[in-house]
């Protein structure tokens, strides 16, 4: 073997070693995030066990009486139903408003807008995604809440204000992903539809949206994921009350806003009950993610 060839062999060996190292490094990165998720889940589960054991599922998850006792936690009641209800109600009503708005904007960008305007709308929505939630919350507090109060004669704080704030927060996710889905549809669909004499609206309504159904659903679910975890903006406008309510004009709390309102002074079973709220939140988020998996699997078949 010539000296030159040996040299090249060594270099190749070093290169292979580096390749391998990079592979291990990336593997470490990947396992770290998996590990982090598992640790978070186990930690929250462990911290919420005392409350589940002490209070029982019924008193903890199915009761709406949340009256913590700071100095003597054992003496308080920790039923979180009002906040589970608050989270689900605000998120669902946000989607009820946000889904048509977001999908509508996506259809506009994809189908109707001239390229320059589509570009402006797209950039604007991307900007919206970058606004910190506290600013959206503050906007809600200073404009939205007084507006709702004047319109309805209520205090203005409540689930309606929270849902509208969440619409603003989830809209970029829904719009961007919906537009992406519409763009990825095969152009033949539209061409065939137009060739059959369908109008643009008929094409959108009868052909494109049904064809993109799964993708649009995933966009909405991811938007829900954004809405369900939002804390700051919601806490500012929902009214931080402890009552179970179904009225959009009444004050209540979501799981997230209740955790941040109460965590400062929580000890013992009070603290554990807050962790149980985090557990419920985590499970709700997982349900969303699993449903996305199921939907995309269906789409592949």
């Amino acid at each position: 073997m010539s000296a030159q060839a040996r040299q090249a062999g060594i270099r190749l060996g070093a290169l292979n070693a580096r390749e391998r190292n990079v592979k291990y490094l990336m593997f470490a990165c990947a396992s770290l995030s998996v590990l982090a998720i598992m640790l978070i889940f186990l930690f929250i589960l462990r911290e919420s066990l005392p409350a589940i054991r002490q209070l029982g599922v019924r008193n903890l998850f199915l009761s709406a009486d949340w009256s913590p006792n700071v100095s003597n936690p054992e003496a308080g009641s920790y039923g979180m139903l009002a906040f589970i209800n608050g989270t689900i109600m605000t998120t669902l009503s946000a989607m009820l408003i946000g889904a048509p708005l977001g999908i509508g904007a996506a259809v506009f960008i994809d189908q109707f807008a001239p390229p320059s305007i589509a570009q402006v709308v797209r950039r604007g929505i991307e900007l919206l995604a970058g606004i910190p939630s506290v600013i959206i919350g503050w906007f809600g507090l200073t404009l939205l809440v007084p507006f709702i109060a004047r319109l309805t004669g209520s205090s203005g704080y409540g689930m309606l204000a929270a849902s509208l704030v969440l619409v603003v927060m989830a809209l970029p996710t829904i719009t961007t992903l919906s537009a992406e889905t519409l763009r990825s549809l095969p152009p033949e669909l539209q061409e065939a539809s137009v060739a059959m004499g369908a109008t643009r609206w008929q094409t959108v309504y009868r052909v494109l949206i049904p064809a993109a159904r799964e993708g649009l659903l995933i966009a909405v679910i991811l938007g829900m994921g954004r809405a369900i975890g939002e804390t700051m903006a919601v806490q500012m406008v929902i009214g931080n009350a402890r009552q179970l309510t179904f009225s959009p004009l009444q004050r209540t709390s979501t799981l997230t806003s209740r955790i941040i309102t109460d965590m400062g002074e929580a000890t013992g079973v009070f603290r554990s009950a807050l962790f149980a709220q985090a557990l419920v939140l985590l499970i709700l988020a997982m349900v969303l993610i699993v449903s996305i998996r199921l939907i995309s699997r269906e789409r592949k078949h």
Partner: peptide
């Protein structure tokens, strides 16, 4: 123990209470 009504708005500071009372009729 007596608690304020469950429909009450809970605030983290004096300033926020004043702000909400000042802006809510």
């Amino acid at each position: 123990p007596m608690e304020s009504t469950p429909s009450a708005i809970e605030c983290a500071s004096n300033g926020v209470v004043r702000e909400i009372v000042g802006t809510t009729r």
